[in-house]
Design a protein around this nucleic acid. Sequence first.
DNA 1: AGAGTAGCCTGTAAGC
DNA 2: TGCTTACAGGCTACTC
Length: 295
Amino acid sequence: MPELPEVETLARDLRAAVVGRTITDAWVAPDAPRLVQAMPVETFTSGLRGRRIEEIGRRGKYLLIKLDRDLWWLLHRRMSGNVIHRPADAPDERYLRARFRLDDGSELRFVDLRKFGTMWLTDDPQAVVAKLGPEPLDEAFTAEVLAAALAKRSAPVKAVLMDQHAIAGLGNLYADEALHYAGIHPLRPAQSLSTEEVARLRDGIVRALEQGLANLGSSMGGSDGEEVSLRDHVNLNGEPGSNQEYLVAYGREGRPCRSCGAAIERLKLSNRSAHFCPRCQPAGGRAKRKRAKAK
DNA sequence: AGAGTAGCCTGTAAGC
DNA sequence: TGCTTACAGGCTACTC
């Protein structure tokens, strides 16, 4: 699942591989009607032709590609979208949804099993990403900033962590990881966290994301024998990341907690699975237990 | 306005 | 074996 570390990994790869290149041709699969947003596909493809790639950026889970003459190509991988870089004559991948020929004979390809991925071509990228919350890997992301995002929210803290308007870039996997590192139960009402817990959660978020980034992302899909599966996150060269080997909570139901050995549990939250350690992440929270003890 | 959830989409895996 | 069902989940649109 592409979340912040997976999209940032892609941004770094693209920065090294395609900045300075010019797009000579673009094609979008006819059976991917949701891929191009806010304009006809023909306007999108003809708008990209002849443009030079100047800068690569990221905001939350959005990839921002600055083209010449102040045009921006925006991309969101959603669930299963991958961007890969291949020689133009390499055989097509399964689930290929769009291709972008470059002036050095290579090709960027968008491969997306579930067809949730979306792209925009716009002179106003802010219009697409304006409502996103703070960037958790910015220096400005302090415990106070997180406290403000959680304040007055009665929803489970995990639901707020996945709310892109509250904080940008966390999805199901890294939210589970961050809460485990912080020792906070996913169902705790966001506003019920103590100042100390918010500080721990801020550190847990940063730790989970930085670890994901250092390992070039989490690729849960595994491989199909010899060939790397394109069903989950892969990097620009088609290879998976390795962060799945280091996860502490996500996908580890029934397996021992890496901190205390208790079996990791799973519950339903916002129609998704939340994974947590019942011992390290108690439902009541530290403040509540402290108060109970004092009585 | 915030909280909760169906639906988008396709493939895998489990259950009968 | 073959069918059905559950699950994976980022985000929007919708209801309450």
